[in-house]
Design a protein around this nucleic acid. Sequence first.
DNA 1: CCTGATCACTTAGTTGGCTAAATAATAACG
DNA 2: CGTTATTATTTAGCCAACTAAGTGATCAGG
Lengths: 142, 142
Amino acid sequence: MEHKQDDALGYLLVQVCKAHRNRVQARLSEIGLYAGQEMILMRLCQEQGVTQSQLVDDLCVEPPTVTKMLQRMESVGLVERRQDSEDARVSRVYLTPHGEAVEVELRSIWQELEMQTTAGLSDMEQALLRRLLVQLYSNLTD
Amino acid sequence: MEHKQDDALGYLLVQVCKAHRNRVQARLSEIGLYAGQEMILMRLCQEQGVTQSQLVDDLCVEPPTVTKMLQRMESVGLVERRQDSEDARVSRVYLTPHGEAVEVELRSIWQELEMQTTAGLSDMEQALLRRLLVQLYSNLTD
DNA sequence: CCTGATCACTTAGTTGGCTAAATAATAACG
DNA sequence: CGTTATTATTTAGCCAACTAAGTGATCAGG
């Protein structure tokens, strides 16, 4: 990647993200997932029966995005949606046995990606990078 | 944003990028652009008559992505494509007067976004962040 | 009660991004 | 010179993400 003095940080951020997403996509295709779906699986692994609204908040995406992703993931048997018994508006999401199996594979892939991403960075540098990224996130969401 | 001890850097990176993209998208819509198109306009401002292959390399995306983006941008009169006179395979891309006008507005918006993104970071921290992101990019593309 | 506001989600339609495969033109090689 | 390989771009089809608008269920006020 070329770097001019006036290269914006925003520009660099976009490029790093594209590269990261491409790597993630390549590895996820091995287990039949698409980029983005891993977030839902990991979230469901933490806690079953999450509502779609909670997924919207956690993934920082809009409701239609979650709706369509879940429809596709349900059609391939990764997750299951059941209506809440108390409030007919909310639908809760659960991992199927197949979804759980895929999540196990996902876990090791994600760990490998993490190691690849942070290669050559000391623990201190990683902590520093994390702190700076948190600052950026705060700047961009407040 | 919540932070558990074991939060992966990759996860944080994805969240920061989503937030950044959302901010960019919101501002670009003011001037009738979609997220991603700003990269093409800025590149064309540097140099007119760039080939699509060069855009593919510079933007780190695949050829079909550039093709479709240019088709849309051409249909709204932002850019113009002309066949190269020596090699009939290559098409060169130029800014239209309208595209140039939009680029001027884009420039100030982009600058504002940059300031917003890096708010609260010292020059040293910005340089450090840049260095760390370059390292990540290198890790993810080699 | 019942009517309007709010909330959870879905549908329709757009774009950016991808892969796989097709087209067309140039380059390379026997 | 003709045949093959390579290169530049496009087409078709998929998914993630968005906005705008719609449907249903719940909640709140009169």
